[in-house]
Amino acid sequence: MSQINGLPAHILFVHAIVVLVPLVAVGVVLSALWPAARVRLVWPTAALATALLVLTPLTAEAGESLEHQVDSTALLHTHTELGDTMPFVAAGLFAAAMLVGALHVLDSRGSMPAARVRLLTVVTALVAVLVGVGATVQVYRVGDSGAQATWQDRVGVAAGESP
């Protein structure tokens, strides 16, 4: 799918990715660190992580289609290289969301010793924070490189002119 209603699909899909990555990251981190939030957020976060897992490769595929329709530049190459990491980022967020979901199920059953639940909670929280922060930083990097590739020298001060 390279176009939607005459517009490049990549441009439209990217907006969902830019919203979903930080949203899922915050949901995963809050669910991992705060048991009261986990009760309410774990399954909506898991659903959004699943949507992100599906949408990210579609966005990358649409981006590759768009890449062949524009001039090749070093900035575009940088954006493409960074963008190629996003399916892995989405997979990491999905895995973290599933880990938090598993913690929630195990904790709610009450069948594990409290010490083991605490250890699992600490490990899950550590994974959630690392993956959540990393994913948010990476989506920023990819988005910034895409904006630079698209808009550099097109708005603001023209290249070579002083402000």
Rank of each mutant, 00 (worst) to 15 (best):
S2P: 00
S2W: 02
Q3R: 12
I4A: 12
I4R: 11
N5F: 12
H10S: 00
I11K: 07
I11N: 08
I11G: 07
L12I: 15
L12K: 01
V14E: 12
A16P: 01
A16G: 14
V18F: 04
V18I: 15
L20V: 02
P22F: 09
V24D: 01
V24K: 01
V26Y: 03
V28C: 00
V29N: 00
L30C: 07
L33F: 10
L33H: 05
L33N: 02
L33E: 01
P35Y: 01
A36V: 13
A37G: 03
R38T: 00
V39H: 09
R40G: 11
R40A: 14
L41K: 01
P44R: 05
P44C: 08
A46Y: 03
A47C: 07
A47K: 06
L48S: 10
L48F: 10
L48I: 02
A51Y: 10
V54I: 15
L55T: 05
T56V: 08
L58C: 10
L58K: 06
T59N: 09
T59R: 04
T59L: 01
G63F: 06
G63R: 04
E64T: 05
S65H: 10
S65F: 06
L66N: 03
E67R: 14
H68P: 00
Q69W: 00
V70C: 00
D71M: 14
S72Y: 02
T73H: 02
A74F: 00
L75G: 07
H79T: 00
L82R: 12
T85S: 15
P87S: 03
F88K: 14
F88M: 14
V89A: 11
A90L: 07
A96H: 05
V100E: 04
G101A: 08
A102L: 14
L103C: 09
V105C: 05
L106D: 04
D107V: 03
D107N: 11
S108V: 07
G110S: 05
S111D: 15
S111G: 15
M112S: 14
A114D: 15
R116Y: 11
V117A: 03
V117I: 14
R118A: 12
L119A: 13
L120G: 15
T121F: 03
T121Y: 03
V122M: 11
V123M: 09
T124D: 04
T124C: 13
L126Q: 01
L130P: 00
L130I: 12
V131R: 06
G132F: 04
G132M: 06
V133F: 07
G134L: 03
A135W: 09
T136Y: 04
V137G: 07
V137K: 10
V137Q: 13
Y140T: 09
G143P: 03
G143M: 09
D144Q: 15
S145I: 08
Q148I: 06
Q148N: 13
Q152E: 14
D153Y: 09
R154D: 02
V155E: 12
G156F: 04
V157P: 10
V157H: 11
A158T: 13
A159N: 11
S162I: 12
